[in-house]
Design a protein around this nucleic acid. Structure first.
Lengths: 195, 195, 195, 195
DNA sequence: CATGAATGAGTATTCATTCAT
DNA sequence: CATGAATGAATACTCATTCAT
């Protein structure tokens, strides 16, 4: 049998490999600056092979996005089943679960964050925005004072920003994640007690 | 005769007009997706004319950045003159002044935020990052617990994010700015009291 | 159970179906602009399947052409058996029979007419031209004055052109065909009486 | 001074040269099969140079067409000033003038004739068709019997077809043109006397 | 101060074709 | 009988940049 490496082993999983390499390069260099030539070369296939698996460049991105995004959709769906306005506990849970999702989908989120301008007029961009507001919808209490609404947004931003800036900072990743989550939870807690 | 509008009036300030139009387009569509042809066309000059005023495309961006960024440099310089670790009052003042700077330089910041991937390997990108860490350096207390450090970062992020997300939200701009500033100040205050 | 429509029913006649769809698309959009992907998709088979039935794209066209063209070959063969120069009656019969052939093979002829440039350096193109001159050979009298030779060509052209332009014009198709045939016969009649 | 050949001399007339070479190649090989690379190579410039002068490939064709087509527009305009239905003399003059126009614009017309399928969904195709019907409108008498209407169309077709088929035939070009014109005039004369 | 003309390197995308299964 | 996966070569088009005038 023998687990052949190289050209042999890669049958059937080309589609997946394209997505992996593409996301890696998109995150590293940006969407516009990553050419299909580059992706193809790194996979050691021709550009045309990419077009066998995906209809367009945008389609590659979309497919990655749709696959990684399911957990968030589930979280949003769960949130919408909860009573409105949300209890503090629901808010905390949302943040907590979101924090874990972010860790898994880190490269994609980093990409989204850093390529907003590019992605804005792609379908992917719209979906992303929708999801952000979807989360915000769950956290927010529309009757709360403005500062408390800001706090909810801020909690989300803290988590996003934190994920990617703190890598330039010393410390254990898991510990950092927890610190970030703590601050975010603090923010919604204050927003809640303001009621 | 007469002062004439249009082509006549725009003598001598072409350089400035290029910067204005360029920033507008960069912010609207992204740096990569904005071509020099587009900038030139909107100004009703030829592409070659742009090269009379600026050495490269990047140079246009750099020049805009350097011009709009001075107030931040001054703020950082002022901050560094203050004793370390910073008093709560200093922290508050930094955020407050930064908040005003952000309002004025909104398009540039929006651009920076949305084009990180692109701008990362431009000189401009480096400078921007330096400035962010410059501000953070002033706010932070290296001996504080991690959560408090996160709070300082979070304060900065809240301000950045707030500026651009809250435009999708109802309410008077100045009021929103104040709410954002309030939350940011709250964050550093808590960070401070943790000492 | 049941004779089943769709995929089931189409056994064995795939080759024919390819030809039909191909001709339809070739006529509609032109040979170059019709891709094998398009043909395959419309038939709900893969491109590779086309290659099971035909060696090349050109081969598809050639096969259609060869199949639809037999009646003309027979007409030409018949014409060549007649005494030279042809009697007026022979000429009339040739036109008359040709008129009917044209009706049946309309899509192919339309295609040929509209894709001359493309088809010129395909085998098919050569064959087509040969056949045109074959017909002309039967009609013409090499000793007649030039104007009469033109009339013979004109008769042929009238029939070709007529078929495809008159569809943009009101009136019953069969009536139009007859009017066209009448004019064509008139032309060869005049050519003949000039002798 | 010296009339430098080669790269020197060709300043200012590049646009014209592109049109010339393009028409030559379009007519020779067809529109689709002529690539911009080929045009550029034959002119010894880069592809990008073509794009300095024309916005798209189609634009090259359109520009050629618009330039060569003016005489026909004038002829149509003149025809529309004449009383309706047209006198026999007007009809003859239209054909006669059209015959001369065709000689001058021969390559373009040959191209149009041979690339109908391709050109159909280009602006140029529409314009061409419009012009054909424009001429037909002048010649036709809507109240005449169908056969006479066919004769008018036939006259036009005879001229078009004649131009390009007769080159495969022996004889002096000018003499052939006259024979063709004679047949065409005969056709409209008959159509007229049928009134 | 600016333009007209051009370039070289690149891009995403499409196509006819092949072949092992 | 047909497909899934891939290729090589091409295509139209765009862009930042240059330079003589």
């Amino acid at each position: 049998m023998g687990t052949g490496t190289g050209k042999q082993q890669r049958r059937g999983n080309t589609r997946q490999r394209i997505q992996d390499v593409a996301l890696e390069l998109f995150a590293e260099q940006g969407y516009e600056k990553t050419s299909l030539r580059e992706i193809a070369e790194r996979l050691d296939v021709t550009k045309a092979a990419l077009y066998y698996h995906f209809k367009t460049k945008e389609d590659i991105l979309t497919s990655i996005f749709d696959d990684s995004t399911r957990p968030i959709d589930e979280l949003i769906a769960w949130g919408h089943e909860q009573p409105q306005p949300p209890s503090l506990d629901v808010r905390k849970q949302v943040l907590s679960r979101y924090s874990e999702i972010l860790v898994d989908a880190a490269p994609l989120f980093r990409f989204m964050q850093e390529n907003q301008a590019t992605v804005r007029d792609l379908k992917t961009g719209e979906s992303f925005k929708d999801r952000m507001f979807g989360l915000y919808d769950i956290l927010k209490d529309p009757d709360a004072p403005m500062a408390d609404q800001v706090r909810c947004f801020s909690a989300l931003f803290t988590m996003h920003g934190g994920m990617f800036v703190l890598k330039d900072i010393d410390g254990d990743p898991e510990e950092k994640r927890k610190a970030i989550l703590e601050v975010a939870i603090d923010l919604v807690t204050q927003a809640h007690s303001g009621d």
